[in-house]
Design a protein around this nucleic acid. Sequence first.
DNA 1: TCTAAGGCCTCACGCCGCGTGAGGGTCAAC
DNA 2: GTTGACCCTCACGCGGCGTGAGGCCTTAGA
Lengths: 255, 255
Amino acid sequence: MALTVSQVARLAKVSVRALHHYDELGLLCPSGRSEAGYRLYTQADLERLQQVLFFRELAFPLEEIRRILGDPRFDLRAALLMQRQLLTERASRLDALRHAVDAALDALDQGKTMDSEKMFEAFGDFDPSKYEAEVKERWGDTEAYKESARRTSRYKKEDWSAIKAEGDQLMKALAEHLGAGRAPTEPDVLALAEAHRQYISKWFYPCSYVIHRGLGEMYVSDSRFTENIDSVKPGLSRYLRDAFVANAERNGVES
Amino acid sequence: MALTVSQVARLAKVSVRALHHYDELGLLCPSGRSEAGYRLYTQADLERLQQVLFFRELAFPLEEIRRILGDPRFDLRAALLMQRQLLTERASRLDALRHAVDAALDALDQGKTMDSEKMFEAFGDFDPSKYEAEVKERWGDTEAYKESARRTSRYKKEDWSAIKAEGDQLMKALAEHLGAGRAPTEPDVLALAEAHRQYISKWFYPCSYVIHRGLGEMYVSDSRFTENIDSVKPGLSRYLRDAFVANAERNGVES
DNA sequence: TCTAAGGCCTCACGCCGCGTGAGGGTCAAC
DNA sequence: GTTGACCCTCACGCGGCGTGAGGCCTTAGA
């Protein structure tokens, strides 16, 4: 059932190079490789690709798409509403341009030369940077987010799949301890919690014990996190929270 | 009355870097420099800038703008009509995207997950390359034009102003001979005609005697050429035609 | 008369979303 | 075993500038 690049490319009407590109960016990494190193895409990959293309059509930058799809805090509704707003603004701009072109044509028909003042009439009052600023404010309002954005934007060529694999491995290990009935306060589990904290610090943003504990709290209080994590193993999000809290305590952070 | 870069930048609301860029491309070279090498823009430069910005707003690539503004054969009406068409297509595309976003929002409101089929419904039937192809066909339909486009697209960093100066100098020299009452068949004039042919060959496209003669014919038969050339000196276009014809004849091309 | 600030200049690299080779391995069919 | 259609990984290029770096020029004020 696994598909090769060119098959996916045909299905989704994108170029093979684009798929390579998305792989490089960590935006869509095929979940498998053949023995010869061929990229192998699963059905799930196809779905993700569709989401990617959806946002791409909506003119989101690829970097942002990666963050959007990878972050369970992501607020789809807000993003869509914003994008709608953006599209509306663009449409009205296009309209203004059409009027400008029409005016130019009229002037031409009447044998007049276009005077330069008229040329600029339509272009005055439009400032695309306004929207940009808004977006930045909306999405980049926490320090951790900003730092994370700063760092992750540099990874590009580095191995995103490696980062993801590292995270998955931690989750899997913790899920196994949960499955084995170990308490979240046991040393092995605490060690894993600590490893996770360092993993976050290393790749995303400086993650203190306090912040890590807060992250754990979010895992249980925010359903988007909870669902995502519990899909690995039911109850894992609570388990993580408890482990993070215990790890913070053991390192001198009061609860 | 000469303006500096930053003054022009403020007036036209473009960046200084953009003006530098246009200078590099030969799209808008300031007509003067101060002793210290500062760019000095005249009123005429400002008008040209306005034209540049006009077409830029209409989403013409800069390279094409340069050709448009530099080529007296340029058909403003056709270009505007095309651009109108382009804008209309874009507008309808934006509309489709807006509907897609709305559909996504509706689905969200009803608690459904977006299914991937719907995601793609709006994106199927749009092929921007169609229009591209049309434009190419419309504007690039002669061999000389194509060759010229191929070559000039490579100049970029090279000194466009030097090329222009070389051409202007030839025109000026020929205009002086015309003013002095020399016949277009005199050796000096023929030499200049030949120099012009080689100038064209060197910078734009291989210009045979036959083609050169044809170019001369166009100078008198196409009013856009005629006006442009006669603005240097009245009657110059005819004079050029005659000189080119004589030069062709002297080199074994029958009339 | 000296100085500091704010022009101006020319390199030259960076960005994004890939296109387009180059140079080489792999797979299926004849 | 040979073809030809795939696949891989570099690595450069494009367009329209943004953004320094490093250095000269000009002008106003102390």
